[in-house]
Simulated scan of single mutants.
Amino acid sequence: MLALTVKPRTPGSLAVLEVPDPEPGPGELLVEGVALGVCGTDVEISLGDYGTAPDGRERLVLGHESLGRVRTAPEGSGFAAGDLVVGVVRRPDPEPCPACAHGEFDMCRNNRYTERGIEARDGFGSQLWSIETDYAVKLSPSLSTVGVLMEPTTVVAKAWEQIDKINTRSWQDPKRVLVTGAGPIGLLAALLGAQRGLQVHVLDRSTTGVKPRMVSALGGEYHHGDLDEVAKQVQPDIVIEATGSPEVAIGVVNLVSPAGIVCMTSVTPVGHMVEVDAGTLNRELVLENRVVFGSVNANLRHYRAAAEALAEADTTWLEQLITRRVPLAKAADAFERGADDIKVVIDL
C-alpha cells in the first residue's frame, strides 16, 4: 500500500512510499483510509522540528487527523464492515501516571505517552491502517465527506468542557464568546459556542472569502478590526484564543469580563518578545477573578463529544471548512499553504 512517510527531524524527507499492509492483531480493526487532514503539527514534523519513528524504524507514517471505513472487525466488537471511524491519536504511558490511569491521557504527567503520526506510532496517512477497537470512534454515516474534521473538533470539545468546569467555581451565566482566529480550531470553537446558545463573535485578519460567511451562518458576528476595540464592543465572558499570535495571546488576557475565562488553544512561536505590563496583568487577574488556561489534545470522552457535535452540525457548513483536497500521490502539495486555505485534506 501507499503511505505518507517522513524521516523525523530530517527536513525534506516527506515522501509517499510503498509500505507493508498492516496486519491487525486480536481486538483490532482493519480500516481503509478515506481522508487525512493536514495541520500545523504535520507541517512542523515535515520540516524536521520534532517527531519520533516507531522503535527500530527510520521512517514514520505521518498523519493524525483520520477518517476511514472499517474493512474487518472482531466479532462482538460493536464495529462492522463499512462503519465510518476515526482513530484516537494519543495512547497512555506504560507506567501509567495518575492522569493516564484515570483515562485522562491528554493530561499525561510524565510525557511517556505515544501518539499516532507524531510520537513513536505510525499515523493514519496510509491506504490501510489498523487500530484497537478501544481507540476507534464510530461516526454518523452523514459525516462521510467531513468526518476528517473530527480530531480538530476534539480539541475544542475538550476546551469547552474545561470552560464549563471552570464556570462552576462561582455562579456564572456566560452570554458572549469571542474567538480570536478563524482557522479550523477557531471556526470549530465558534460552532460549539453557537451550539451552546452563546452570542458568538470571531476576530480574524481576513476581510474577504468564506470565513465571514461561515460566522454569519452560525448567527455570529465577524470582526477584523483592532483587538481592544472589538473587545470593548463585545465585552466577552469567554475568550478562546486560536491565532498563534503572541501579541493576541497576551492581549486577550485582560479583555474578558469580571470572572471571565480565557482559553488558549494555539501554540505561539518561541522567542517572540512582547512587552507586557506584568503588574497590571497580575492585578487584573486577581481583582477580577479571571482565569487563563491552556488546552491541548483530547481523550476518549472528548472524541465522543466531538462526534455528537459534528452530527448535530450542518454538513454544508462543515464542508466549507475543507477548502482544498489533494490526492495522496500529490500529498506534498497539501503542505504548501494557500492564502485562502482553512483545512487542506489528502484523499487516501
Rank of each mutant, 00 (worst) to 15 (best):
I342R: 10
A217D: 09
R337D: 07
L36F: 01
A231S: 13
N297G: 05
P141A: 05
Y135I: 06
R69C: 01
R71W: 03
I261F: 13
A190K: 09
A157C: 07
G25W: 00
N297H: 02
D340I: 07
G87N: 00
G68R: 04
F293G: 06
Y222A: 04
P269H: 02
L318W: 11
V179R: 04
E161K: 13
T153Q: 06
I185P: 15
E308R: 15
Y50S: 04
H64F: 05
I250Y: 15
N110M: 05
R112D: 15
T145A: 08
H201I: 09
D204R: 08
V234H: 11
Y113H: 12
C263L: 06
T243S: 11
L62M: 07
L348K: 04
T265S: 11
K343N: 05
V34M: 02
P174H: 04
R69W: 01
L285D: 11
G209A: 10
D226H: 14
D277S: 07
V267L: 03
A339C: 15
P269D: 11
S140I: 03
L17Q: 13
P269F: 05
E151I: 01
P141I: 00
G193T: 07
L188W: 09
E95W: 14
T265I: 03
D21Q: 12
P24R: 00
K175W: 07
G271P: 11
P92A: 05
R196V: 04
A305W: 01
A136V: 02
P22R: 08
V16R: 10
I261E: 03
R176C: 04
V88N: 10
A194S: 14
E132Y: 03
W160E: 12
Q127H: 08
E75C: 12
L203T: 05
Y222T: 02
A259P: 12
G338A: 08
S245A: 14
S140R: 07
K232D: 14
D42Q: 02
L188I: 03
I322A: 03
A313H: 08
G103Q: 06
P184G: 03
D42L: 00
C100S: 07
E58V: 03
G48Q: 05
L321I: 07
G219T: 01
V38S: 03
A136W: 00
A194R: 15
N254A: 11
V34C: 04
